[in-house]
Design a protein around this nucleic acid. Structure first.
Length: 447
RNA sequence: UCCUCGAUAGCUCAAUUCGGCAGAGCGGGCGGCUGUUAACCGCUAGGUUCCAGGUUCGAGUCCUGGUCGAGGAGCCA
C-alpha cells in the first residue's frame, strides 16, 4: 500500500511508490502518453500515464479528462529534470488512478491570460492558479511571522471590537449598520484607541483583524475591507517605535525568504531586493523629505513629472511623492515628523514645534508606498481635550479615552501595518486585490 | 465626487491614417502523435460587436445620451 503524500514532500520520496490526492491543473496527451499536471494544495507535480501500463478504457478517459477533475494517483516517484511543477524536478509514473470526479468541460479559467473583471468574478477558481496560490501562501506566512514576532517580544494579543460606537479617528467614512435600540453601530477602522486602553493593563499589546473603510478610493492600493495589525506599547517614544518597526519588518521579510522562496521565484520576484532588508532603515524628517521633493521638482524638465511632483510644506505625500522618495533607497524608508494638520488628532506634538507631530510612516521600496503609519500618542489630558474640540469630535464619546490620560498617563506609541500592502510589496505584484483571497472593493462584494 | 481610458465568440484580442463581406489564438467537440512544459498538427461548432437613439446607400468603426468596468486624484494602511 503506497503512502499518501503531499507534493511539497516529493523530493524525499524518490524511488518510492506514493499516492497523491489532487486536481488536474493541466493535461497534455501525446498519443500513447498522457501528462497530467496535478496540484494538491501543497504543490504541483507531473504524473505520466503510458497507454501500455493502464486499462484501455481508463487510458481513454485520461486522454480526455477535463481540467480540474479530481483524482487520486498512485505510482513511483522519479527524478526528471524535464518535469514541471512546484517544487518540480520529480514526476509520478501512473500505475493506478482513481477519477474522483470528472469535471465539467466548461471550466472558465482556461490556462491563459484573463482580464481583471473576469478573473475577479471567478476568484473562487482563480485562487487555484499558480500565481494566486503562491501569493496567498506567502500571505499566510506573513501573518504567521507577524504573530510570531509579537508573541516572542512580550506582546499580548488583544482583540478589539469590530462593531464600534463611533469614528475612531473621526475623519474617514465608516460603514454603518443598525444596532438594536442603540441607533447605529460602525464597522471598525482601527483598534488603536482600544489598544491604548489595553496597554495600561498589559504594557505591550497588538490587535490583528479586518478593518473597514467606506472611502470611495479606487486605486491599486485600496480595499474597503483589509487586514491590519496594530501594536501599541507603553513607555515608548517615537525613536523606540522606529526601532521596533524596522526589527519587525525585517523579521517578516526574513521568514518569507526562508519559507516561501519557491513561491517568490514562481512569481518572478527579484529576491535580491528583499535580501537587502536589514536594520537600520534610513530615517528622514518630513522637512528633509520636502527639500528632496523640491530638488527633484527643480531637477526635472518633464512637465508631466513636474506636475506630479508639485509639493509644498504642509501637504501630505501623494503616490508620486512616495515613489520619488523611496526610489533613493534600497530599504524601507522611515519618514517622521509630519505636519500636525495632515495627521490624526491624537498624535503627540513635536517639542517646541506644535505645527509638527511625532508621527512616522514606513514607506516600502520600489514604489509600494506606505505600509505602516504610526506615532507617539498624546499623553496630556488637557491638550487631548483641546484637540477633540478642534476636530469637532463629541467629547462624551471619548470620555473613556480621556480617562486614560487621567489615571496613570505615560508616553506611548504604536502603529498600524496593512497586511495586503505588505504582501503586495513582498510578492512584487501590481495590485493589492490579489493579496487577499476575496477582495472587497468599492465595486465588488462577489464572490 | 472629479479626471482619463475602455466594452467585439466562453476567455484574450484583431478588424487599413479617414465607414465597405465579423477574424485569430486559447478553451469546447472529432481525429493524429511515447517526453509534453499555457505541447504541436488537421478538421469542426461557436456572434443582439454593452444599451437606446442619430448621421449615412452602408456603422464594430462617426455623433448624442446612458450603463458597466478599469486606475489615477482626493482620503488612507
Amino acid at each position: 500500500m503506497a503512502s499518501i503524500i503531499r507534493v511539497d514532500q516529493i523530493a524525499a520520496c524518490e524511488g518510492q511508490e506514493v499516492t497523491v490526492q489532487g486536481w488536474v491543473y493541466n493535461r497534455t496527451d501525446k498519443g500513447k502518453l498522457v501528462f497530467l499536471l496535478v496540484r494538491d494544495g501543497s504543490g504541483f507535480v507531473q504524473c505520466v500515464a503510458f497507454k501500455g501500463d493502464l486499462d484501455a478504457a481508463l487510458f481513454d478517459r485520461l486522454v480526455r479528462l477535463p481540467q480540474e477533475s479530481s483524482v487520486i494517483v498512485t505510482g513511483p516517484v522519479r527524478a526528471d529534470k524535464r518535469a514541471p511543477g512546484v517544487p518540480g524536478g520529480y514526476e509520478i509514473g501512473v500505475k493506478q488512478i482513481e477519477i474522483v470526479q470528472e469535471a465539467a468541460d466548461d471550466y472558465p479559467m482556461a490556462l491563459k491570460e484573463h482580464g481583471v473583471d473576469f478573473a475577479l468574478d471567478h476568484r473562487h477558481l482563480w485562487i487555484r492558479m499558480p500565481s494566486q496560490w503562491a501569493i496567498l501562501r506567502i500571505r499566510s506566512t506573513v501573518i504567521a511571522a507577524i504573530r510570531e514576532w509579537f508573541d516572542t517580544h512580550g506582546f499580548i494579543n488583544m482583540d478589539t471590537p469590530i462593531l464600534t460606537p463611533a469614528a475612531c479617528e473621526g475623519t474617514t467614512t465608516l460603514f454603518e449598520t443598525p444596532y438594536f435600540d442603540e441607533g447605529l453601530a460602525y464597522l471598525a477602522q482601527s483598534g488603536q484607541l482600544y489598544n491604548e486602553a489595553d496597554i495600561m493593563a498589559f504594557g505591550k499589546v497588538y490587535c490583528f483583524g479586518p478593518t473597514f473603510r467606506a472611502e470611495k478610493s479606487k486605486t491599486r492600493r485600496h480595499l474597503t475591507e483589509f487586514w491590519m495589525v496594530e501594536p501599541e506599547i507603553a513607555f515608548c517614544d517615537l525613536d523606540q517605535l522606529m526601532e521596533i518597526e524596522e526589527q519587525f519588518v525585517t523579521h517578516i521579510v526574513k521568514r518569507v525568504l526562508r519559507e516561501r522562496l519557491p513561491e517568490l521565484k514562481s512569481l518572478g520576484r527579484d529576491i535580491t531586493r528583499l535580501e537587502k532588508i536589514e536594520p537600520p532603515f534610513p530615517r528622514i524628517s518630513y522637512d528633509d523629505a520636502a527639500k528632496i521633493l523640491q530638488e527633484a521638482y527643480d531637477a526635472t524638465d518633464d512637465p508631466e513629472k513636474k506636475e506630479l511632483l508639485k509639493f509644498e510644506w504642509g501637504m501630505d505625500f501623494g503616490a508620486p511623492h512616495e515613489t520619488e522618495l523611496t526610489s533613493r533607497f534600497d530599504k524601507p524608508l522611515l519618514v517622521y515628523g509630519y505636519p500636525t494638520a495632515v495627521k490624526a488628532f491624537y498624535m503627540e506634538p513635536w517639542p517646541g514645534r506644535p505645527e509638527v507631530c511625532k508621527s512616522v510612516d514606513l514607506l516600502a521600496p520600489e514604489g509600494y508606498g506606505e505600509i505602516i503609519g504610526g506615532s507617539e500618542r498624546m499623553s496630556s489630558h488637557d491638550l487631548l481635550l483641546q484637540r477633540l474640540h478642534e476636530h469637532q469630535l463629541p467629547e462624551e464619546a471619548f470620555k473613556w479615552y480621556l480617562d486614560l490620560r487621567k489615571y496613570g498617563s505615560v508616553p506611548h506609541s504604536g502603529f498600524g501595518m496593512g497586511v495586503e500592502r505588505t504582501v503586495a510589496w513582498l510578492c512584487g505584484i501590481e495590485h493589492i486585490r490579489e493579496a487577499i483571497a476575496y477582495p472587497r472593493t468599492i465595486k465588488r462584494v462577489y464572490p
